[in-house]
């Protein structure tokens, strides 16, 4: 059976994993490759590494981490943060990443999606979107880690990005992120119904039912979470056991 994916997200700064609440107040949670191996053992289906250093001189730290991860952990992983050009994508994919995610860079230069998809295949190109509600069934895209509004309508931007070459959407609700009150079901469902590529829901996981809700009511193909996993509130396996008990197909 085809399964829904559970994806721990590791925010990496200067080669170490951190995760904040609403992107402020970071706490150190360990070595990225060790954590990746632990998540693999727990049956995580995929991993996402977001480089929040993003200062250019430290890029090599992330390339080395991707290479170390691909040498030791044999499940798919995505690297995002600071990917601005097709050459940045090429370096990460060559280092062993399976996919690269772009956010701000794609808004500044949408053609990056087309170029990346043409060069590496659209399955390698993940579009990360940070969205905040600005009306009934309406969300606005934010950039720079959720600080800067763009004026772009979330659904319109995502449809355009998929037409250009985005192969998957990593969708973060700025309203839900860090609250532990649950994923943004309405946003996730709206995006999932608008495009034919997989949607990864992100932001707001606090209890087991939240995962179930966004995968069923929200129609997400995958769920991403960070702090609930890093700080041991749940293991990936507990989430999967729960989903299985509610009739959602997952991999063990």
């Amino acid at each position: 059976m085809y399964t829904k994916r559970i994806i721990p997200c590791l925010d990496v700064k200067d080669g170490r994993v951190v995760k904040g609440t609403n992107f402020v107040g970071l706490r150190d949670a360990g070595n990225p490759v060790d954590l990746a191996a632990r998540y693999d053992k727990e049956r995580a289906d995929e991993l996402v590494f977001l480089d929040i250093t993003a200062s250019h001189e430290k890029r090599n730290t992330m390339v080395r981490m991707a290479s170390d991860c691909a040498s030791q952990v044999f499940i798919p992983f995505t690297v995002g943060g600071g990917i601005r050009t097709v050459e940045d994508m090429r370096i990460m994919l060559k280092a062993g990443a399976d996919k690269t995610s772009v956010n701000t860079a794609a808004i500044k230069n949408p053609d990056l999606l087309r170029q990346g998809a043409e060069k590496f295949g659209r399955q390698c190109i993940v579009l990360a979107v940070d969205a905040r509600r600005n009306g009934e069934d309406s969300w606005e895209v934010y950039i720079n880690g959720g600080r800067t509004p763009t004026g772009l309508d979330c659904l319109a931007w995502i449809k355009k990005a998929v037409a250009l070459g985005a192969g998957e959407i990593l969708l973060t609700s700025m309203d839900a992120d860090g609250t532990k009150d649950g994923y943004d079901i309405a946003l996730t469902k709206a995006v999932s119904e608008a495009v034919d590529v997989p949607v990864i829901a992100s932001g707001g996981a606090g209890n087991l039912e939240h995962f179930y809700d966004v995968l069923t009511l929200g129609k997400a193909d995958a769920v991403l979470a960070a702090s609930v996993f890093h700080y041991g509130q749940f293991t990936v396996r507990q989430v999967k056991d729960y989903l299985k008990s509610r009739g959602v197909e997952v991999r063990f």
Binding site: M1, Y2, T3, R5, D45, Q123, G167, E168, D196, V197, P198, D221, A222, R251, F252
Partner: peptide, 30 residues
Amino acid sequence: KIPHMGWNSLDVAEPHQPIDLFAGLASIPY
């Protein structure tokens, strides 16, 4: 959704080849 991307389970046929790639796997390999 196309591509078929992600984890899926295998239905493994009875082995009758010199190399059996699926020997000794879990009962439902993903």
